[in-house]
C-alpha cells in the first residue's frame, strides 16, 4: 500500500478485494523520492543493520541479549527507564493538555506556539544544566524556600527520578503539546455549543464532548513522548541519581569503558524492541501516521 502511494504519487484507487489488478504506473516525478530514500537507507538503515549484526557477535546472541535481563544492574535500569518514561509521559500530558486547549481556543495561538518552540532552539545540554541550578540542594528553589522559612532542610529535587522527570518534561513538553493542539484545533466547537444548547453545563459539555474528541491527540502525545523518553541520556546523567539508572547510561558504559560493542548493541536493540512494542500496542488505539502530524480524525 505504502509503496504504491510513494511510486504513483496518489492514493491507490479503492481496489477492495482485487488488489494487484491495477498495476501502479511509475511517474517520472516519483524519482524525486530517491535521494531521500537513499539518504535514509545510508544514514539510518545501514547503521541499524550494523548494530543488529554486532549484537550477534562476541560471546554470541544468547549471551548478549540475556545480560539485559539476567544482570541485576541492567534489569533495574530497564525497569527504571520504563518508569521514568511513564512518569514523563503523565506529567507532559497533565501540563500539556490545558496548554494545548488554551492554544486551540486563544486568538494568540502564534504567541503561545512561539513560547513552547523557542526553547527548542536552545541546546538540551544547556537547559539541563539550567535545571540543575534550580533544583540542586543549594539551588534557586531550595535557597528561596529556606530564606522564606518554609523549609529547614533542602527538598530532594535532584539526583532522583523527580529531577529527571522535571528536566525531561521541560524538554519533551512541546512534543506533547503539538499533537494535542493539532487534534483540538480540528474539533468542531459547534458540537460543544450544541451540547450546551441542549442543556449540558459547560463542564459536562467539556467532559462528555470535547475530551472524548481530543483523545486521539492524547494517545498520540503519550506515544510520542514515551518513545522519545526511552532513549534520553543527558537528563538522566545530569539530573538523575543512583536510584534511577537508564539503559542509555548502561550502553555508554559498555561502549566507552568496556569496549564491548556487542553487548551494547544488544542492549540498544532491546531498547528499540521496547519502543516497537509500545508503538505496536499504541497503533491499536491510534494511527501511527497521525502521531507524527498527520491528519486527525
Amino acid at each position: 500500500m505504502v509503496d504504491q502511494v510513494v511510486l504513483t504519487g496518489h492514493r491507490p484507487a479503492t481496489s477492495v478485494g482485487r488488489p494487484g489488478l491495477r498495476r501502479p504506473r511509475v511517474n517520472g516525478w516519483a524519482l524525486l523520492v530517491l535521494p531521500g530514500l537513499i539518504f535514509t537507507l545510508i544514514a539510518f538503515g545501514w547503521p541499524l543493520a550494523e548494530v543488529l549484526v554486532r549484537s550477534f557477535g562476541g560471546e554470541g546472541a544468547a549471551h548478549n541479549y540475556s545480560v539485559t535481563f539476567t544482570t541485576p544492574a541492567y534489569r533495574s535500569a530497564l525497569v527504571s527507564t520504563l518508569l521514568t518514561s511513564a512518569a514523563v509521559t503523565v506529567s507532559c500530558l497533565v501540563i500539556g493538555y490545558p496548554y494545548a486547549y488554551l492554544m486551540a481556543m486563544s486568538r494568540r495561538t502564534e504567541l503561545l506556539l512561539a513560547l513552547i518552540l523557542l526553547p527548542i532552539w536552545t541546546s538540551f545540554l544547556v537547559r539541563t544544566y539550567a535545571w540543575q541550578i534550580w533544583l540542586q540542594d543549594t539551588g534557586v528553589i531550595n535557597t528561596t524556600l529556606q530564606k522564606l522559612g518554609i523549609i529547614d532542610d533542602p527538598l530532594e529535587l535532584i539526583r532522583n527520578r523527580l529531577g529527571v522527570t522535571i528536566g525531561m518534561t521541560g524538554i519533551l513538553l512541546p512534543f506533547a503539546i503539538l499533537p494535542l493542539y493539532t487534534v483540538m484545533r480540528r474539533i468542531d466547537r459547534e458540537l460543544v455549543r450544541a451540547a450546551e444548547n441542549l442543556g449540558a453545563r459547560p463542564s459536562v459539555a467539556f467532559r462528555r464532548v470535547f475530551v472524548p474528541l481530543s483523545l486521539p491527540g492524547v494517545y498520540s502525545a503519550a506515544l510520542l513522548v514515551f518513545v522519545l523518553a526511552l532513549g534520553f541520556y543527558i537528563a538522566p546523567a545530569i539530573l538523575g541519581g543512583t536510584s534511577s539508572p537508564t539503559l542509555s547510561t548502561v550502553i555508554v558504559d559498555k561502549v566507552q569503558r568496556e569496549l564491548d560493542f556487542h553487548t551494547a548493541s544488544a542492549i540498544g536493540i532491546t531498547l528499540l524492541a521496547v519502543a516497537i512494542v509500545v508503538l505496536t500496542l499504541g497503533s491499536r488505539v491510534v494511527r501511527i501516521r497521525d502521531v507524527f502530524g498527520g491528519g486527525a480524525p
Binding site: 533495574s76 536510584s243 564491548d260
Partner: peptide, 14 residues
C-alpha cells in the same frame, strides 16, 4: 575486572 565490578557496584547503587 571492570565489567564484573561495575555490574556489582551499579546494582548496589540502585
Amino acid at each position: 575486572n571492570f565489567g564484573s565490578v561495575n555490574d556489582k557496584f551499579q546494582a548496589w547503587l540502585t
